[in-house]
């Protein structure tokens, strides 16, 4: 079912607020993985504000849906989502990366309420998701496991080992989501290590591939999630075509902004650009 206008506007506003909170957190932290945070924030907004079955008051609830941040370097993008949701005080964000803080560049499950697994070493998320889903089947639980994976990260063989197993066991409760922003650390993915045809690879591994043409469009992402969640015969993967740094014009689609810091002036510029970006989005949608 497509998003209703009111709901769409609510979610678009949430994505705008979260983008700004991410920029502020990068500034509090001194610097951070801003590019890959902004490419994924629209999907994170939908998961945490519409689709995931979670209870903020009970973060360890056994039957909650799980989210595994396999591209764990975007802690600076994900911690704001959890804080804003109410899992821990917003003030924690102001200590991001500081000595003794609960929040470091790569988030630690034992320190961050609402976080389902520690991550940061790439290529670990999907095997964890496989194990979670397998255990849910054995324990007769119905939760889903969403797993956000970078496109550069997709180089790691462990992803494909897990993909093979998830398809083999027909674990439709796992939904891998590929943040296809075409950038990794040393350059653009097709220049550093070609991935294409990425959809054919997943298909060959036994998945239904859901391509999202604009992975920063909430309506398209919402359709994709609903299709994936309805899939019963075989597992689905969402490949979302996003832009690194999306929403902040001067860093958009530029791999050199994988990791960056902003001074006061640049921070202001980011805020202005975020507003312009979301105003434009809303203008086009409604």
């Amino acid at each position: 079912m497509p998003l209703q206008k009111e709901e769409y506007l609510r979610l678009e506003q949430k994505a705008r607020d979260l983008r700004k909170l991410i920029i502020n957190t990068v500034v509090w932290a001194g610097s951070g993985h801003v590019g890959g945070s902004l490419s994924a924030i629209d999907m994170l907004t939908l998961l945490y504000h519409k689709y995931m079955n979670i209870d903020v008051a009970n973060p360890e609830w056994e039957d909650r849906d799980r989210f595994i941040l396999s591209k764990g370097h975007i802690g600076v993008g994900f911690a704001p989502v959890l804080a804003d949701k109410g899992f821990f005080p917003m003030e924690w964000l102001e200590t991001f990366n500081h000595t003794h803080s609960q929040l470091g560049m790569h988030l630690d499950k034992n320190k961050v309420p609402g976080l389902d697994a520690s991550s940061g070493s790439l290529g670990h998320g999907l095997p964890l998701a496989f194990g979670l889903a397998m255990s849910a089947r054995l324990k007769k639980q119905n939760f889903r496991t969403f797993c956000l994976i970078g496109d550069g990260e997709s180089n790691e063989g462990s992803n494909w080992e897990a993909a093979m197993a998830i398809a083999h066991y027909k674990l439709t409760s796992v939904i891998p989501i590929i943040d296809r922003n075409n950038c990794m650390m040393d350059g653009r993915t097709e220049e550093v290590m070609g991935l294409e045809p990425l959809d054919k690879k997943w298909e060959a591994f036994g998945f239904r591939v859901i391509n999202v043409k604009d992975g920063n469009d909430l309506n398209q992402l919402s359709d994709a999630l609903e299709t994936a969640m309805d899939s019963e015969d075989k597992p689905s993967v969402i490949i979302m075509q996003t832009k690194k740094g999306c929403g902040v014009a001067h860093i958009t689609d530029d791999y050199r902004y994988h990791y960056a810091g902003f001074d006061g002036e640049k921070q202001e510029q980011c805020m202005r650009e975020i507003d312009e970006y979301h105003d434009q989005r809303i203008g086009a949608e409604v």
Partner: peptide
């Protein structure tokens, strides 16, 4: 994918064919 971070990248600037980047693997 850590040519820049580890600084081995300078070898590639001098001899592009002698620095092999295998991706994140």
């Amino acid at each position: 994918d850590l040519a820049k971070s580890t600084k081995i990248g300078v070898l590639g600037e001098k001899y592009p064919e002698r620095l092999i980047n295998v991706g994140i693997a």
